[in-house]
Simulated assay, not measured.
Amino acid sequence: MTIRVMLVDDQELLRTGFTMVLQAQPDMEVVAEAGNGAEAIEKLRSTAVDVVLMDVRMPRMDGVEACRRIAGDGPDTIKLPAGRERPKVLMLTTFDLDEYAFAAIKAGASGFLLKDVPPTELLSGIRAVASGDAVVAPSTTRRLLDRFAPILPSESDARPEAVESLTEREHEVLLLVAQGLSNAEIAERLFLSEATVKTHVGRILMKLGLRDRVQAVVLAYETGLVRARGA
């Protein structure tokens, strides 16, 4: 199945470079481009897209607001034709400059990548998001949350009582997910099979009413299960 990708970035040269990389893949097609969030939303009304590769900082409408309207569930969320699935949003960030990356994840992004990501990581990230997974790179996730979680305003909808409903093993798995570990790494740490870990993660998301692993990381920080350095 071909993954339909929309590139959203105000730098035309960067979009051109990404297009060359993506179009060379047998399972990907760049179906639309946009120079800002507002333009992206307009194009999504008439173009079927599986993954939106979205920059954070752009004129007119930044990536955080665009992500909220595309992937969120608020009253101003973009309305799509009946039967069309809502695209997943994969954010791009320079990290050292973009304090909004954490907010973008809370807005509904399925993950984030650095702008200078190697092509192989970019491609695997897009494929992961398209398949319903979340791109949570262990090292960058920890660095991002450690740096920004203490200073970003939180409109927490965390449900401590729901966290308490987790079994001891599920709680243990949630803590490791929050640290950015993959299913394989968690399996190795807890001496479980990867399939068993995947089952635990699925149950955790269901019990907590979360969409994906990224939201699980956010909830773990907001409820104090994991604390950012300096918090």
Rank of each mutant, 00 (worst) to 15 (best):
M1G: 07
I3S: 01
I3Q: 06
I3R: 03
R4S: 13
V5R: 01
D10E: 13
F18T: 04
T19I: 10
M20Q: 05
M20L: 06
V21W: 05
L22C: 01
L22K: 01
M28A: 03
M28V: 00
V30S: 01
V30Q: 04
V31D: 07
A32S: 06
A38E: 11
S46L: 11
V49F: 10
D50W: 06
V51S: 06
V51Y: 07
L53W: 10
M58E: 00
M58I: 09
M58N: 00
P59A: 11
R60I: 15
D62Q: 00
A66K: 08
G74E: 07
P75H: 07
T77G: 06
T77L: 02
T77S: 05
I78L: 13
I78R: 01
K79Y: 07
P81A: 00
A82G: 08
R84T: 15
R86P: 04
K88L: 09
V89K: 04
F95K: 12
D96I: 01
E99A: 09
Y100N: 12
A103N: 02
A103W: 02
G108I: 09
G108S: 04
A109R: 04
F112S: 01
L113A: 05
P119Q: 04
T120D: 06
T120I: 13
G125T: 01
R127D: 12
A128W: 10
A130W: 02
D133I: 05
V136F: 12
A137H: 11
P138S: 10
S139M: 08
T140F: 10
R142N: 14
D146S: 15
D146Y: 02
A149M: 08
P150I: 05
I151Y: 08
E155R: 15
R159V: 06
R159D: 11
R159Y: 03
V163L: 08
E164M: 13
E164I: 10
S165G: 02
R169T: 13
H171L: 14
V173Q: 03
L175T: 14
V177I: 15
Q179T: 05
Q179L: 04
L181V: 02
E185S: 14
I186K: 10
I186L: 14
I186Q: 14
I186S: 09
A187L: 03
R189C: 09
S193Y: 13
S193E: 10
S193I: 07
E194Y: 08
E194Q: 13
A195N: 12
K198R: 13
K198T: 14
K198I: 13
R203S: 14
R203L: 11
G209F: 11
L210F: 11
V214E: 10
V214Q: 08
A216H: 06
V218H: 12
V218E: 09
A220W: 00
Y221P: 00
E222D: 14
T223D: 06
A231V: 11
